[in-house]
Computed example of a mutant assay.
Amino acid sequence: MFKGLGAMGDMAKMMKAATEMQSKMSEMQDNLHNIMIVGESGAGLVKATATAKGELKGLDIDPSIFSGDDKEVVEDLILAAIKDAQQKAAERSQEEMAKLTEEMGLPPGMNLPT
């Protein structure tokens, strides 16, 4: 289609590739909002669910931790579960980005915005 156009053909190919990459990035961003990650603390007594973008979606607390005057312990467990979910979300986001860059033939480790 672009044969004989020289640099114009190369530019058109680059523009098409850039448009395709932008489309795939947008699709990946949407997918990250749908991937759910569960972080936990206290051997599973507190579980935090977040999207792969790190948005907290849910919190599950085993009622057995509400006995006595353990308010500070409960707060610490909740924070630990949320941090665990956020860390796992960040790792999953990077994994998804690595898959996308590999599919597109980009060099490994190329950091694209997430």
Results as ranks from 00 to 15, higher is better:
Met1Ser: 10
Lys3Leu: 09
Gly4Ala: 03
Ala7Met: 12
Met8Cys: 01
Met8Arg: 12
Asp10Ala: 15
Ala12Ser: 04
Lys13Ile: 04
Met15His: 09
Glu20Thr: 07
Glu20Ser: 03
Gln22Thr: 10
Met28Tyr: 00
Met28Thr: 04
Gln29His: 09
Gln29Asp: 11
Val38Gln: 13
Val38Lys: 12
Gly39Thr: 06
Glu40Gln: 11
Ala43Asn: 13
Val46Ala: 07
Ala48Asn: 05
Thr49Tyr: 01
Thr51Val: 04
Thr51Ala: 06
Glu55Tyr: 06
Glu55Asn: 10
Glu55Leu: 11
Leu56Arg: 06
Lys57Glu: 05
Leu59Gly: 00
Asp60Gln: 10
Asp60Phe: 09
Ile61Phe: 05
Pro63Leu: 04
Ile65Arg: 01
Asp70Val: 15
Lys71Tyr: 10
Glu72Met: 14
Val74Asp: 00
Val74Glu: 01
Ala80Phe: 02
Ala81Cys: 08
Ile82Tyr: 11
Asp84Ala: 12
Gln86His: 14
Ala89Leu: 08
Ala89Ile: 09
Glu91Tyr: 14
Glu91Thr: 14
Arg92Glu: 15
Glu96Pro: 00
Glu96Gln: 06
Met97Gly: 02
Ala98Pro: 03
Lys99Pro: 02
Leu100Ser: 03
Thr101Asn: 00
Thr101Phe: 01
Thr101Val: 06
Glu102Tyr: 03
Leu106Gly: 05
Pro107Lys: 06
Pro107Ala: 09
Gly109Val: 07
Met110Gly: 06
